[in-house]
Write a protein that binds this DNA or RNA. Structure first.
Lengths: 159, 159
DNA sequence: ACTTTTTCGGATTTTTTTATCTTATTTATT
DNA sequence: AATAAATAAGATAAAAAAATCCGAAAAAGT
């Protein structure tokens, strides 16, 4: 039912984007993030643990503990997060599930999938958490009533 | 664990490509297809039923029965098959699972996913079963008989 | 008619994914 | 010290997906 990422990955990205959006807050509890991003807290906590192991986050226990970025969010590629949580399937597997499919022995969908995958991978490998959440912040317009639309910020991609 | 399509859809496509590859054979039993494409027969049979309802296949019961194309495979878009089996999620859903995400209220990944999805959809909407299996037939090299295979089989390979 | 072979359709089982629960540990505050 | 608040980690439960099973119906061959 999920469309590109597993649920765990969807939730993690939602929470990470929320964190990146407010860099001034450095430590976050799972409760806080779960509420803000509408994700099940215990599940989010679980997947956050693997992000700690994967050197995306740090965690501190205890009363004023929580999770924080291990690196600045402009140094974290989306691909890293996805790879940690969903593994290499997205990059390695055949779209028809054939274990022997490859350039030497392509399935009928091989070339098509290769093209799609290139698009996916090139985005995930070039986009950082900071970029995505910045674009989100800027791109979202306050919905003014102006008869003439101003120049929209468009897509601030650093490309 | 599947990467773009559900298992049911992967299996169905494998079987449909196999059928399209040999247009001279018009009727196929599930057993035959399942064996050739290494898919679980009862499961394939189940999903084939929905393709009959979806006007991709016809079925005839009884002794010399089986499944056949309802239309010529050059008139069947991959997107039709995917839509019947996996539904509209691929085209409609947010990549982060947010029900309210849309152009007016985009999630941080919205523009990226839109771009990826465009690539997916444009391929699935332009490619027919016949095209894919023809490309496959022609593209596949005749695999000559060598006493020593250079690459070991069995290990999934990327690109 | 009877048997065989096939799809049909529902029910059921198994497996995987998703979600929660529980206990332990850590740390700040009182 | 005691308490409260937080993550850690393993166990468990629930839900969904994948796979199987079974009785029925249909059609061809004997």
């Amino acid at each position: 039912m999920p469309v590109l990422f597993s649920r765990a990955c969807e939730y993690a990205l939602r929470a990470l984007f929320e964190m990146a959006r407010q860099e001034e807050q450095e430590s976050w509890t799972v409760q806080e993030l779960a509420q803000r991003t509408h994700t099940p807290a215990p599940f989010l906590a679980k997947t956050f643990q693997s992000l700690v192991k994967g050197d995306i986050l740090t965690s501190t226990k205890g009363r004023s503990g929580g999770f924080a970025f291990a690196r600045r969010p402009d140094q974290i590629l989306l691909m890293e997060v996805v790879a940690i949580i969903d593994g290499p399937a997205l990059v390695e597997n055949c779209a028809l599930g054939l274990p022997t499919c490859g350039d030497r022995n392509p399935c009928p969908f091989h070339q098509n999938w290769k093209e799609i995958r290139t698009s996916i991978v090139s985005i995930l490998r070039s986009e950082t958490l900071a970029q995505s959440s910045l674009a989100h912040k800027l791109g979202r317009r306050p919905m003014r009533k102006s008869t003439k639309p101003k120049i929209s910020p468009g897509r601030p991609r650093t490309s």
